[in-house]
């Protein structure tokens, strides 16, 4: 256990270092010069050099990295170029929105995928299994940008069940309860779109692991103890089957970000994706860097958290 934990922590640290180097370099890989783009059309070689000195861009690269790292660790991601607003301010609100979208979508995904896969695995090849397996396969093959069109058309334009694109998910002025209500009302549809792909993935993984687990000897033992089928399915089979699904949930976060950007664009939500595209058009290097950094760190930290949870779910993990 201690070995497992220390390994994970060492890996986390190494990854965070590498990611910070990567994000630091990303800006240097991109064409153009930050100082030039800050100064805009009025730039002269003299003013650029002056600003370079001011920004520390004339120092050796490793020194720049450590200075930059120092700022990052103090929560300072720099000042966005065109707007002169701190990057943290720009990213802060969008980050909150994206985290909420991901959390709700993953909650929905597990809520739907787990019971479906448990009951589908109960009779492999049975009606429920075939129906759910083929549906989830179809959903798996349906890219999120097609799903989003469907959903937006049906629920907002056709039926008006949910607020259309552009509704503010963070209203102010109402009571906190009504604000939360409005927020959920706005967020539920984009989260659902985001959840569909995850449902398909989690269903496939958990179902096949469940089928496998249900053939294990300890399930026969559980039956020989006179336990009911539901108890065997839920108490004895789900946990040992869920490791692949949980691990994939970690990997899935990185993939989910593509869907997230699409959902943001289609629902006109001010998330990191919209900010990123804006920043790319505006040559706003520091915001791009900040978004890349925040997104990568989030993915890594989520994966780390899942690694920490796994031994609690299955004690065999920490001993492998």
């Amino acid at each position: 256990m201690t070995r497992y934990l220390s390994q994970r922590f060492a890996a986390l640290f190494a990854i965070l270092v590498l990611i910070s180097v990567g994000c630091f370099y990303l800006v240097h890989l991109l064409p153009g010069n930050p100082a030039a783009s800050i100064l805009g059309v009025t730039a002269t070689p003299q003013t650029i050099a002056a600003l370079d000195r001011q920004l520390g861009l004339d120092k050796p690269i490793y020194e720049q990295y450590f200075i930059w790292l120092g700022h990052i660790l103090h929560g300072n991601l720099g000042i966005a170029t065109p707007s002169r607003v701190p990057v943290t301010t720009i990213i802060g609100q969008s980050y909150k929105l994206d985290v909420e979208l991901i959390v709700i979508s993953q909650f929905i995904a597990f809520l739907i995928a787990i019971p479906l896969s448990v009951y589908a695995a109960r009779r492999p090849g049975g009606f429920l299994d075939q129906a759910t397996t083929s549906t989830s396969f179809a959903l798996f093959c349906l890219p999120s940008f097609i799903i989003v069109l469907w959903v937006v058309n049906l629920f907002t334009i056709h039926w008006h069940t949910f607020p259309g694109p552009g509704t503010n998910p963070f209203p102010t002025g109402g009571s906190w309860l009504s604000n939360i209500g409005t927020n959920l009302y706005v967020m539920i549809l984009p989260s659902l779109v985001l959840a569909i792909g995850s449902i398909a993935i989690y269903f496939r993984l958990l179902r096949s692991e469940m089928v496998f687990t249900l053939q294990e000897e300890f399930i026969t033992v559980a039956r020989s103890k006179g336990l009911t089928t539901n108890r065997i399915l839920w108490r004895h089979a789900v946990r040992p089957s869920s490791i692949t699904m949980l691990t994939s949930a970690g990997n899935n976060i990185a993939l989910l970000i593509t869907g997230l950007f699409i959902v943001e664009v289609k629902f006109a939500l001010p998330g990191l994706g919209s900010e990123l595209i804006g920043a790319i058009y505006a040559n706003d290097y520091l915001t791009i860097q900040g978004i890349a950094l925040v997104a990568a760190i989030t993915v890594v930290v989520v994966n780390f958290a899942i690694d920490m949870i796994l031994p609690l779910v299955d004690p065999r993990i920490a001993r492998a």
Binding site: T220, K225, G226
Partner: peptide
């Protein structure tokens, strides 16, 4: 009916102790 018999009236010890206990409990 079988479930009410399995456990209190008929029980079984299985062959392979390495696989017959639930690893997560």
């Amino acid at each position: 009916l079988l479930r009410s018999i399995w456990g209190p009236r008929i029980a079984m010890v299985f062959q392979d102790p390495m696989t017959s206990l639930n690893p997560v409990h």
